[in-house]
């Protein structure tokens, strides 16, 4: 399949993620949208890696290594993020980011 398909798919996924982050109010859903963004990037990286490999670059596998790094970092983020969300939930019985305006004043 042409690389454009992957590019469009991942851009679409990324945009869905961005929209989700900006529109949704539930911390967990926002977080999932962020993960969606990261995975869109992963897909795109692999697609580009294939593209450049086809174009004859020998170091194109670097992008796939990058994907691994993203996954690891995403995992670390998940770990921290879930812990934070659990903590917030236990503190305020809610993960709605709108009610967290106590900080504002």
């Amino acid at each position: 399949m042409p690389v454009q398909y992957y590019i469009f798919l991942s851009i679409a996924l990324f945009c869905i993620g961005v929209t989700g982050v900006l529109m949704r109010r539930n911390a967990i859903i926002i977080f999932m949208c962020v993960e969606l963004m990261l995975n869109a990037v992963n897909l795109l990286l692999v697609a580009f890696s294939k593209m450049w490999a086809d174009a004859g670059r020998v170091d194109a596998s670097g992008a796939q290594i990058f994907v691994f790094f993203i996954m690891v970092v995403a995992a670390a983020e998940v770990a921290v993020g879930l812990a934070i969300i659990v903590m917030v939930y236990r503190n305020s019985q809610s993960v709605d980011i709108n009610i967290m305006n106590r900080l504002k004043n």
């Binding site: 993620g17 961005v18 911390a27 926002i30 962020v34 983020e77 993020g81 305020s92 967290m100």
Partner: peptide, 15 residues
């Protein structure tokens, strides 16, 4: 809450 905000915004910008 600060932590959650920071986390959400930070990971978003990472994306």
């Amino acid at each position: 809450e600060a932590s959650l905000k920071y986390f959400l915004m930070g990971s978003f910008s990472t994306g």
